[in-house]
Simulated scan of single mutants.
Amino acid sequence: MSTPCPCGPGSYHSCCEPYHAGKKSAPTPEALMRSRYSAFVLKLWDYLIATHHPSHLHGLTQTLLAEGPHPQWRGLTVHDSQFDNLSGEVFFTAWYRDDDRLDGMCERSSFVFEQGQWFYTQGKQYAPKLPGRNDPCVCGSGKKLKQCCLGK
Rank of each mutant, 00 (worst) to 15 (best):
E67Y: 08
C5W: 02
E107P: 05
P54A: 10
L102Y: 07
Q72A: 14
H58S: 04
C139F: 08
Y47A: 05
L130Q: 02
F111D: 02
G104K: 06
Y12W: 06
S141Y: 05
R74K: 02
W73C: 03
E114C: 02
T121M: 12
P9N: 10
S141F: 06
R101T: 15
F119R: 03
L86H: 10
G10P: 08
Q72R: 12
H20T: 01
K23N: 12
V90K: 00
K43Y: 08
H13N: 10
V112E: 08
C137S: 05
P128V: 09
G132F: 02
V112A: 03
H20F: 10
S14D: 13
Q82I: 11
L76G: 05
L60R: 05
T28I: 13
M33G: 03
C15D: 07
H13I: 05
C149I: 14
E67R: 03
W45A: 12
M1S: 14
Y96W: 09
A66C: 09
P69V: 10
G116Y: 14
R108V: 15
D100F: 13
C7V: 04
S11Q: 11
K124H: 13
H20Y: 08
S81P: 01
Q125W: 13
E30P: 10
R108F: 09
E114N: 01
N85G: 09
V138S: 02
F111G: 02
P69M: 10
Q117N: 06
C149K: 05
G10I: 08
S87L: 10
C137K: 04
E67G: 02
K152N: 14
K24F: 11
F40T: 07
F113D: 00
L76V: 04
L32Q: 04
L145D: 09
K129H: 06
L76R: 02
L102A: 01
P6S: 11
V41L: 08
A66E: 15
H79F: 04
Y12H: 05
D98P: 00
Y12T: 01
C106S: 03
H56N: 06
P54S: 05
E107S: 03
P6A: 11
G8H: 06
H79A: 09
H20Q: 07
E114F: 00
H79I: 00
F83C: 14
Q147F: 13
R133Q: 06
L150D: 01
P69I: 12
P29F: 07
P69D: 08
Q122E: 04
D135F: 11
P9R: 11
F119G: 09
L102P: 04
L44Y: 08
K144I: 04
G116L: 14
G142F: 06
E17P: 00
P131F: 01
Q72Y: 09
A39L: 04
D135K: 00
H56W: 02
Y19W: 05
